[in-house]
Each structure stands twice: as structure tokens, then as C-alpha cells.
């Protein structure tokens, strides 16, 4: 992990207020593990001090290119969305412990479940697992068709089921309503999304080997400030999402 100063290659709005930001430069070669994140400086000067955690959505480590997909919602991500080709992005990374791909063998099955802005890291993970010879399926949840992204790209990797809250694409409902056909195959489950989604998912993954990526507000992003602490079944009774996670085995952390 290092502080990197990367060049913006492109910034594209791929759905309603959802941006795909591609950056390039030295340091990306170390971003090998899906589920790890980068801690992005948003803003200049000292008015905005806290960095924003954004997942690695895809990394081309041979060409030093990193893709992030994020929703411009608050002050920091709105600023990030105004960056364009020629600008620099200051980020720390790669941070945290991502998805362990060794838990599913070549020829095995994996179900990747994502909701909203929890979807991006599943792209890199899906791509890597498929490369290794794992049969990958995706259950993806969005609010509405205008919020959905990357569906065609996911279809290039594996089977895809989509749910939207308003039924504008896929099935009306939540990810948990579209995944039974996949869970029946006893896959290893990898998930990323808001806590309500992970809680609902927990009922569906009973008896399955499952790994979840968690979200928490962060200060340092490197394990020093104890901002991102979450109760857990570890000897200390807690984990830090930033440095022990963000990915944990589902039994480890209380959701």
C-alpha cells in the first residue's frame, strides 16, 4: 500500500449519477486482489480531509489501469465526478483484505451477490474467478433501471439474474428474490452491498460457505483510528473493517 498519484484516463457516466473512472499510473500493478479498496482524496486544500473508500472495480495490472465505479452522492464523490482526462487522483492503496479466491476451486461454482454500489468489486472478482475456471453466476440488485450498470459486462462472465425495487428491469424485488436457482447449486457465495441486503442474504446462505464485504465510515483507512470497528466473533471481540476486512467470512462479523 502506497500513496499513488494517478492520471485520469476517462470519466464516463454509465447510469444515473453512477460514474466509471479510469485512472492510470505506477502502483496499480499491486492491485491484484478483488475486494480490496482504495482511499481517495476528494477535493483540494484542507477543506475536505477524510478520504473516500472506493472498491477496485477492475484492474489491468499489466497496463497499470484501475477502474472505479461509484455513485456521486455527497460532497466528495460529487467532486470526484468533476475530474476529467489530464487531472490527477491522489489515492492510497490497495488497502484491506479482499475476497480469497482460493476457497473455490477450478471447476467449482461461485455466486456473486451485489446491491447498488456494492456491485463494482464483483466485476473484478467475477472476471478473476472465471479466468481460473470457476462457474460464476451473479445476482444483482438495483433500485431501478436508471441505476443499473455493467449488466452486459457481467453477462460476458457468467449467468446473471437482476432484481430492481420497482421492477423496471429483471424481477421486481430484491437480490434475495432472484437467487434461489443459483443457491440450489451449493455455490460459494461472495457478496457486497448495504447491511440490510447482507442481513436478508444471511437467511439464504444458511449452510453455504459465504464471504461478505462490509461498509463502514472510515477515518484513516489503515487501521489506526478505530473509526470503522465492528463487533465480531474474534478474540478481541471486534474487527476493523478497513484493515482486517472489508471482506469477512459471514460467521465472523455480527451484521
Amino acid at each position: 500500500m502506497k500513496r499513488l498519484n494517478l492520471n485520469v484516463v476517462s470519466q464516463v457516466m454509465i447510469a444515473d449519477n453512477i460514474f466509471e473512472l479510469t485512472v492510470e499510473g505506477e502502483g496499480v500493478e499491486s492491485m491484484k486482489v478483488p475486494g480490496q479498496f482504495v482511499h481517495v482524496r476528494t477535493g483540494e486544500g484542507f477543506s475536505s480531509l477524510l478520504r473516500r473508500p472506493i472498491s477496485i472495480c477492475d484492474a489491468d495490472t499489466a497496463n497499470n489501469r484501475l477502474k472505479m465505479v461509484y455513485r456521486a452522492q455527497g460532497k466528495g464523490t460529487a467532486w470526484l465526478s468533476t475530474r476529467s482526462r489530464g487531472d490527477k487522483i491522489d489515492l492510497l492503496g490497495p488497502l484491506g483484505n479482499g475476497f480469497n479466491q482460493d476457497v473455490v476451486e477450478a471447476g467449482g461454482k461461485a455466486l456473486l451477490v451485489g446491491g447498488g454500489i456494492g456491485v463494482p468489486p464483483l466485476y473484478y472478482l467475477g472476471r478473476k474467478l472465471a479466468q481460473k475456471g470457476v462457474a460464476v453466476s451473479f445476482a444483482l440488485g438495483f433500485q431501478s433501471s436508471k441505476d443499473a450498470f455493467y449488466i452486459e459486462k457481467f453477462k460476458e462472465i457468467g449467468r446473471v439474474a437482476v432484481a430492481t425495487a420497482d421492477g423496471t428491469i429483471g424481477k421486481k424485488g430484491f437480490v434475495t428474490d432472484v437467487m434461489d436457482k443459483f443457491t440450489a447449486e451449493q455455490p460459494v457465495v461472495f457478496a457486497c452491498g448495504p447491511s440490510p441486503m447482507l442481513r436478508a442474504l444471511n437467511h439464504k446462505t444458511e449452510g453455504l460457505n459465504a464471504y461478505y464485504s462490509f461498509e463502514e465510515r472510515m477515518g484513516c483507512g489503515v487501521g489506526a483510528c478505530f473509526a470503522c470497528v465492528c463487533e465480531a466473533a474474534t478474540p478481541s471481540g471486534y474487527v476493523k473493517i478497513c484493515s482486517d476486512g472489508p471482506v469477512f467470512k459471514k460467521e465472523e462479523v455480527s451484521i
Binding site: S48, L49, L50, K75, R217, G219, C225, A227, V229, C230
Partner: peptide, 11 residues
Amino acid sequence: TPRVAETESGM
């Protein structure tokens, strides 16, 4: 948690 929040030029 949340244990931190951003403020103008501070936290």
C-alpha cells in the same frame, strides 16, 4: 458507529 463525520476543514 458511525464514529466519524467530515466537517468543513475538519472532522
